[in-house]
Amino acid sequence: MVTTKELIKENNEKREQLTEENEQYYTNILVYIRSKFLLSERATEELLMEMLEHLLEGQQDGKSAEEIFGGDPRAYADEVIGQMPKEKKKNQLLFGIQLIFSVLGWMVIARGAILGVLSFIKPADEHIYLASTAAMVVAVLMMTAVGVLLLMNMVNKTAFEEKKSTWKFAVIGGISGVLVFGLFMGIAFFFKGRGPAFEFPWLASLLVGFVLLLMSQWIARKNEGTS
């Protein structure tokens, strides 16, 4: 059986055969449906492939996307979404865990890399302070969750806008970037050296981060197999 990943790849390739007008219409629907991330990914990609094949076949018979799917793409997409199966709870949970492992992995790798470089310049403090680290981890995970949800929401809201206002994305992205950076600096400053400590050398940090990323990959593959 074809995997979901293969369907996505095939979709990207086949979309290029659409006329400009049809491509615009179809891609708006695709972005809109994909941004509803509680839907079953498998069902979503199967449906998008069906619609794409239908459109391609219709295009050969001289039909436009509007003739096939109607003049109100958002209403049509909402109708379809209303009938789509939701992602299984187990897969949602696995996806969440996968994301957490991946974020933690990159955090630990970044720490290892920064300390590694620093330690060549001057002796660096390679201790982990449990309370400080816990505060930082919680903040990063929460920011990631909020960021992903906000982005999905924005993509969802703007999917059918005639002129995609990229500057709006840029401004909001910039402001949130500054806020997030400020928050992290604040935590790093006010929660400095709190809680029990143990030594965690930079090389070990890199290694642990790498293992976390591998585990995240492993979960992702496991998840793909069951959805």
Partner: peptide, 20 residues
């Protein structure tokens, strides 16, 4: 309209009346 069939097909699958 041709697109109408897809919500229908999804609903019928949800009811397990057809399989795709």
């Amino acid at each position: 309209s041709e697109g109408t069939i897809y919500p229908v097909l999804l609903r019928l699958q949800k009811n397990s009346w057809i399989s795709g």
